[in-house]
Design a protein around this nucleic acid. Structure first.
Length: 267
DNA sequence: AGTACCACCTGACGGC
DNA sequence: TGCCGTCAGGTGGTAC
């Protein structure tokens, strides 16, 4: 799940559970997700500190850890299957500890666990969040970029609009699922050329993008809670289009499967 | 600049 | 039941 809305939900979860607790130590039973650090390295950085604030940029989550020398932040990226669990005492029966990759132990017996069945994901630390974002080549966050900036970025692109929306160096946060939703609600086919859309349509895509991401966060990314008329809960080949009653179809775009409604998306 | 693959991992699912 | 191919919401690298 982890696109911008999912990561925003994780951020709020972490902020409501894990701030202002002393960190006793860190374990990394899945060290493959650690990049540029080691289990002991991460432990040395975090031990004795406490998380004080959170920040999301695109699909990355930064967690500021204060109480030691210099600024240090935990950096989390959730790959395709990652998420967080917090618990006090032992893990409940529903917690998938088999796939726990990083565990932060707080004094008093609470734990924050980064779980990722497929170890595609990233956990590290940085002393410079801005520098990290720059190194990764991330564009502005999809909820932060303004309308004119968005139109400028999209204009002059020769590739498919879907791949432009998903290009993290242009705009950070949109992935395969939400690009489908945004294009569906904008009435634009996934294989339309971004540069062919025109200013008016691009402004509409920008407005729809903001609305969709916001609604997804509000729905806590639960498809059942999405507003009516959303494609996401019907994102299945042959399903009934929630707007026109036609059939949802798929096509390949940038090596990914795009779901769309030929009846609603003609642009 | 854009695309087309491959790779990294694991699990679920359909077909035989 | 088992084996096999395919697919899955991520990014990063290479080669054309």
């Amino acid at each position: 799940m982890p696109e911008l809305p999912d990561v925003e939900v994780f951020r709020r979860y972490l902020a409501s559970t894990s701030l202002h607790k002393k960190i006793d130590g860190v374990e990394a039973p899945g060290p493959r997700v650690l990049k540029g650090t080691s289990p002991s390295g991460l432990g040395r950085v975090l031990k004795g500190r406490e998380f004080t604030s959170t920040r999301r940029h695109g699909k990355y989550l930064f967690v500021r850890a204060d109480g030691g020398g210099g600024a240090k932040s935990l950096v989390l990226h959730f790959g395709m299957t990652g998420y967080l669990e917090y618990f006090e005492g032992g893990p409940g029966p529903g917690v998938d500890m088999d796939h726990a990759r990083v565990v932060v132990d707080f004094s008093g017996g609470a734990h924050l666990v980064y779980i990722a069945p497929r170890q595609i994901g990233l956990v590290t630390w940085t002393g410079d969040e801005e520098g990290f974002i720059e190194e990764k080549g991330l564009g502005p966050d999809a909820m932060e970029i303004d309308r004119d900036g968005f139109v400028e970025l999209m204009r002059g692109r020769r590739g498919d609009v879907k791949s432009a929306l998903m290009d993290q160096s242009l705009i950070a946060g949109v992935g395969n699922i939400y690009s489908d939703e945004i294009l569906f609600q904008s009435g634009v086919r996934p294989d339309a050329k971004a540069g062919d859309l025109g200013g008016k349509k691009l402004r509409e895509v920008h407005r729809v993008m903001r609305r969709v991401l916001k609604a997804a966060v509000k729905a806590r990314v639960d498809p059942e809670r999405f507003p009516r008329g959303y494609l996401l809960p019907r994102r299945v080949e042959g399903a009934e289009c929630p707007r026109c009653g036609g059939r949802v179809k798929t096509m390949k775009a940038v090596g990914r499967t795009a779901y769309y409604c030929p009846g609603c998306q003609k642009g």
